[in-house]
Design a protein around this nucleic acid. Structure first.
Lengths: 200, 200
DNA sequence: CTCGTTAACTTGACACTGTAAAGTTAGCAA
DNA sequence: TTGCTAACTTTACAGTGTCAAGTTAACGAG
């Protein structure tokens, strides 16, 4: 998949992007250790060293993939918000659901971007994508910040809860859970939060 | 470090344990991708294939390390609880602090055990260690479960918050944060939880 | 139309990795 | 002493990241 010409690619300027896509599918297929410059190259139909021209490092490719992941991540939260009623509380649960939805839809990618392996934090694409995600969270939590409150406290509360729930859900593939025995939903858990305005 | 005899080791039955320890220091030194069967072997002073006798796989070694990590993790929460006043709320904040304390003290190990790379979930050591950790959480959150409540809902709320906060803290080594500008503390965030009994 | 330059690769090499198979050796029971 | 088995070692092979050097396509200048 994802090889458009089937003919030997000739400097059409799409290789970098193809490599990222191939890398993502590779990650999805073979897990966090399945990413490899050489196999990306092979699947993209180029020589084994071609990726190093575009990314220099495995770290470079990893960073590019993480950037793409953060972009999808932000996008997931944005569409969740767009579909929600325009009340603070509804928007709050919406981004949390968007957070979780992304994790479920792209488990390997989610684990990868939050795996703590060292990426090039100075990469501009990565920077803007992750900042975008954080900005969404910050805006949504803003109405819950009281007059004397530290905004970061509220942000971190919400972020921690959404992240913790999603991350734990992705890690525990175990635990049998026969039907009618599902994990408590994120929406239920969110109800325990004591937050300021219009809790509808 | 961690090589006791300096003489060539001769079937003294301690190799397996040494390899786990070396593996952990390797993880700490070189990050999540720094773990390698061959370097573990080299540092333990044995041939490169010796580890596969004890662990069979890299996955086997990884599982053994994760098991050790979960054991330390449970231990951290247990000592935190032991030092806390015997009220439900105090015990609650205690395990959360224990959770975070472990993450801070063993960042690489913490990220490793929650990295989502596939381990041998059927390994008995791993099973008991992780179950032990979960049991602690379950017991501490039990007093907050009301008569009609789902216990798992409360457990998951607390677990998510503690995990999310700790995990995010380990991942964001960035963000400048000059002094007086620290992240809100976990204790502050925990105050926003609306939970049943004696909130002292 | 040719020339030179440069971006976008390819080729080749090296050290390192996991893993499997076969060989060796230490210690112990009979 | 013999024989058996646990705990290794040796050898081998395919796959990996990374570097250095070679090649080729495209394109603007002359």
């Amino acid at each position: 998949m994802t090889d458009k010409p089937a003919r030997p690619r000739k400097r059409d300027g799409t290789l970098r992007d193809s490599l990222i896509k191939v890398g993502i599918t590779l990650l999805r297929e073979k897990g966090p250790d399945g990413l490899s410059l050489r196999e990306c190259a092979a699947r993209a139909g180029v020589s084994h060293a071609a990726p190093t021209y575009h990314f220099k490092n495995l770290k470079g490719l990893s960073t590019a993939i993480a950037a793409r992941a953060f972009s999808l991540f932000a996008q997931s939260m944005e569409t969740s918000i767009a579909d929600a009623p325009d009340t603070p509380r509804a928007r709050l649960t919406a981004i949390c659901e968007g957070y979780l939805a992304f994790a479920k839809a792209h488990r390997e990618l989610f684990l990868f971007m939050f795996s703590g392996l060292d990426l090039d934090g100075d990469d501009p694409e990565f920077e803007t994508a992750s900042t975008r995600a954080y900005t969404i969270l910050s805006e949504v939590s803003e109405p819950f910040v009281g007059p004397g409150d530290d905004p970061e406290e509220i942000e971190l509360l919400i972020w921690s809860l959404a992240h913790g729930y999603s991350h734990l859900a992705m890690i525990n593939k175990k635990r049998p859970r026969s039907k009618g025995n599902d994990l408590p939903t994120l929406a239920k858990i969110l109800r325990h939060l004591e937050l300021k305005p219009s809790d509808t």
